[in-house]
Structures are given as C-alpha cells and as structure tokens.
Amino acid sequence: MKPHRTALIASLVLAGGTALTGLAPAAQAQTFDPCSAANHGRLRYTTGSAAHVVFAISSSFDSNHVVVTECAKQGNAWKRVSVTTGRAGTGAFARPGAKREGDGATPTGSFTLTEAFGLGNPGTKLKYRTLRSSGDCWGATPGKSHYNEYYSDPCRSTDEDLSAIAQRGPYHQAVVINYNRPNAKPGLGSAIFFHVGGVTPTGGCVSIAESRLRAVMRTLVPNDRMIMGPRSALFRS
C-alpha cells in the first residue's frame, strides 16, 4: 500500500472510527461518506424505519464496481460503521424501473432487508433459513409458482438452486434484498441478494467478501435497508 493511501485511511479511521477495507477497485469513491450526505438531506431515497442502512454505490450506471458502506442510526443522525468494496451485476445497474428478468443488472433504489439464508446463522436478527444439502430453491421463472420467493422441492432448472450455489460459495451467507417482493410482478426480476463474493460481477446481486458480509449481518434487524445504485442517482449534488 502506498504511503499517502495509508495516511488517508488512517486519518479516516481516527476521524470517524470507521473500518475501511479493500478499497483499491473504487478508490475514487472512498472519500464520499453517504451517511454524512444523508444527514445533510442529499439522499433521494427513503431510509424508512431502518436502524442500519447499507449503501452499495457505483460511479455510474455502466459500472459494477461498488463501494459498500454501512451506516447506523445514532439519535437523529447516521454514523458510518464500515466501508468495503464489492461487485454488482454483469449488466451493472438498471435505471429505476428498468430492471428485467435475466438482464444481469442490479436494480437501483431503496429496499428493505427482512430475511437471510446460508450455511449457518452468523448472528443476525433477520429471519434466517439454514440451507440443506439439497432441496432449497428460489423461484426465478416468470409465470411459474413461487416467483421471487423461496420454495422447498426439487428445483426447476430455470430457478435458483440455493443449496447447490451455497456449496459453491456465493450463498455461504446471503441477505434477501426485497426488490420486486412481496407480491412480485412477473418479469421484473428476482433473486436479488446481498451475498458472498466481491471479486467478480454477479447475476444482478451485490456481493462482498464473506468476512465483511458476516460482520454486517450481525448488525442487521428486520426492516433495515439496502440503498444501491450510481451515486448520481442516489444523491443530490
């Protein structure tokens, strides 16, 4: 790590008590604090009743590199808790309302977080489902039953086999991002998760390193939020 970068990270940690990890792919965004911007009324989206908000921010609609920042509510203000880098979909970010099934894009907007799944609860207060070695599925086929929701059965080939994907790594841990759910509209996109990864693009989800995801999950409670998309779409200048 270059000396000036070491000094910058050290100064940020001393100033705000913030853990900054793995920022090389999106170093241009490391000085932007979405928690502070939200405090100053610049956020375009609601935080609802969230006690924690996780921001996944890219530089543009064409970029799938994101800076993932966790903010915690303290009184009437948001305080930055942690920052890391991650990846979004192969199709980068869809403009609001433009997300469609199979486009590889990550939806832009503010979405509640109410449940999670994986190989074992890391300590989250979200509703948690421990996956089995087989038989855990997520509907991703427009017009079929269980579209954009969990079901237990032999998985259709056009749906997501959560059990198998967990064995490969990405779903060791995952938080369900409530895009197009409940009451999913067929074809607008499904299976949008906050999961393990952070190195390569996803199919439309947001991913970060497993150790960082587990740490974030331990702070989450039902109706916390993920707010994600390009900085210009999420914040006023």
Score class of each variant (00 low, 15 high):
9 I>Y: 15
65 H>P: 08
120 G>W: 00
234 L>A: 06
54 V>I: 08
195 H>I: 00
138 W>P: 02
60 S>M: 09
227 I>S: 02
162 L>H: 01
199 V>D: 15
167 Q>N: 15
28 Q>L: 10
143 G>F: 05
65 H>F: 10
109 G>R: 03
123 G>A: 09
44 R>P: 04
115 E>M: 13
106 T>W: 07
105 A>C: 10
220 L>V: 07
233 A>H: 08
175 V>Y: 05
83 V>M: 10
135 G>Q: 00
167 Q>K: 13
180 N>W: 12
102 G>D: 05
130 T>I: 08
178 N>V: 01
213 L>W: 00
94 A>I: 00
163 S>T: 05
3 P>V: 09
67 V>C: 02
141 T>W: 01
67 V>T: 08
136 D>M: 00
138 W>M: 03
36 S>Q: 13
198 G>L: 07
36 S>R: 12
88 A>F: 04
148 N>K: 13
110 S>F: 04
192 I>H: 03
186 P>S: 07
155 C>F: 04
139 G>E: 03
225 R>V: 06
21 T>S: 14
154 P>C: 02
162 L>C: 04
82 S>I: 05
14 L>T: 10
86 G>R: 05
144 K>R: 12
46 T>V: 11
143 G>H: 07
25 P>Y: 08
92 A>C: 04
51 A>F: 06
123 G>P: 09
90 T>Q: 12
192 I>E: 00
213 L>C: 00
206 V>M: 03
228 M>I: 04
143 G>A: 01
173 Q>T: 04
62 D>S: 14
53 V>G: 00
58 S>M: 11
182 P>V: 05
165 I>Y: 08
140 A>K: 14
123 G>Q: 07
201 P>T: 11
168 R>A: 13
225 R>C: 10
193 F>Q: 03
37 A>E: 07
184 A>M: 14
46 T>R: 15
149 E>G: 03
78 W>V: 10
200 T>C: 12
225 R>F: 07
9 I>A: 13
15 A>V: 02
10 A>M: 12
138 W>C: 04
207 S>F: 02
178 N>S: 06
195 H>Y: 03
235 F>Y: 13
17 G>W: 10
45 Y>F: 03
115 E>R: 15
195 H>D: 03
170 P>F: 03
10 A>W: 12
200 T>K: 15
160 E>Y: 08
91 G>I: 06
236 R>A: 08
139 G>F: 08
30 Q>K: 10
210 E>D: 14
70 E>P: 05
93 F>D: 04
97 G>I: 02
174 A>P: 09
158 T>H: 14
195 H>W: 01
145 S>E: 04
187 G>I: 06
180 N>F: 11
7 A>T: 13
135 G>F: 01
225 R>Q: 09
50 A>K: 08
101 E>A: 12
152 S>H: 14
83 V>R: 10
24 A>I: 12
87 R>T: 07
122 P>V: 13
215 A>Y: 10
198 G>C: 09
212 R>T: 12
164 A>E: 14
45 Y>D: 03
230 P>A: 09
177 I>D: 12
94 A>G: 07
182 P>T: 05
231 R>P: 06
179 Y>F: 15
